[in-house]
């Protein structure tokens, strides 16, 4: 649920990385943290257990000040993947504006992906949200592992589905920014259509995307255009 404070000239969006346990949600955030220009992102807050698995959530804000003088902030959350943390996942999902569903590309994880998606839809419903109406992109992570679903298979399911699909190797930072760019664009368009953000706040889609996705000059990555755009 985007929060807009016209008085304070602030707008805050909430993005949640969801997916089965160990699919790489935290790794996505870590990669973004590393790749992004430190002036547009805050600290990566990790609330994890002793075994390095997410207990509550990870949180990293990205933000900029628009030309129209609005403070725009996007908070990136990860939901804990382990089955036991169901209530935490629901709390993290509260009022989400967009979701990156991080799926594990390994064939053996197909079932876990499906279960997690159903769990997400259920939890969204509990929060009064509808998975069909929310901007959601799917990231097939761990493309570098053996026995993963082939590129052709993924392209095929991407063509058939409603959700934009991205491929990634989050550990190496590949595809991570493209995924985020895809979701931010999708989210902006959805919110703009619903609440008329552009006209009310005088922020254009391109300003929103390019201001948020400023890469760190030291990240050693070419200044690449944001990946596949959302429909």
């Amino acid at each position: 649920m985007v929060q807009i404070n016209l008085e304070q000239r602030e707008i805050t969006l909430k993005i949640v990385y969801y997916g089965p346990a160990l699919s790489g949600k935290t790794t996505n955030l870590q990669a973004i943290h590393q790749l992004m220009d430190p002036t547009v992102r805050g600290r990566l807050m990790v609330l994890d257990t002793s075994d390095d698995r997410t207990l509550f959530f990870d949180l990293m804000p990205v933000f900029f000040r628009s030309r129209s003088g609005f403070s725009v902030k996007v908070k990136l959350f990860t939901a804990p993947g382990q089955v036991m943390h169901s209530s935490t996942r629901r709390v993290v999902l509260q009022a989400a504006d967009g979701i990156v569903f991080v799926a594990d590309s390994q064939r053996s994880m197909t079932r876990a992906n499906n279960d997690s998606w159903r769990d997400m839809a259920h939890n969204l419903k509990q929060n009064g949200l509808n998975v069909q109406e929310l901007p959601v992109v799917i990231q097939f992570n761990k493309r570098d592992l053996p026995d993963v679903r082939s590129d052709e298979e993924i392209d095929e399911v991407a063509r058939r589905g409603r959700e934009p699909v991205f491929k990634a190797v989050a550990l190496r930072g590949e595809g991570v920014m493209e995924t985020l760019a895809g979701l931010l664009r999708f989210t902006w368009r959805t919110l703009d259509a619903r609440h008329g953000l552009s006209s009310k706040l005088h922020i254009e889609e391109e300003e929103f995307i390019t201001s948020l996705l400023r890469l760190s000059p030291t990240a050693g990555m070419a200044d690449q255009a944001p990946g596949r755009s959302a429909p």
Binding site: M1, V2, Q3, I4, N5, L6, E7, T12, K14, F57, L59, K75, F77, V91, V92, Q94, A95, H195
Partner: peptide, 18 residues
């Protein structure tokens, strides 16, 4: 839900956004 809350109104929709 209306994302433009009245001035001073507290939005309780997300516990983590406060």
């Amino acid at each position: 839900m209306n994302p433009f809350p009245a001035a001073g109104g507290r939005d309780l929709s997300s516990a983590l956004q406060r």
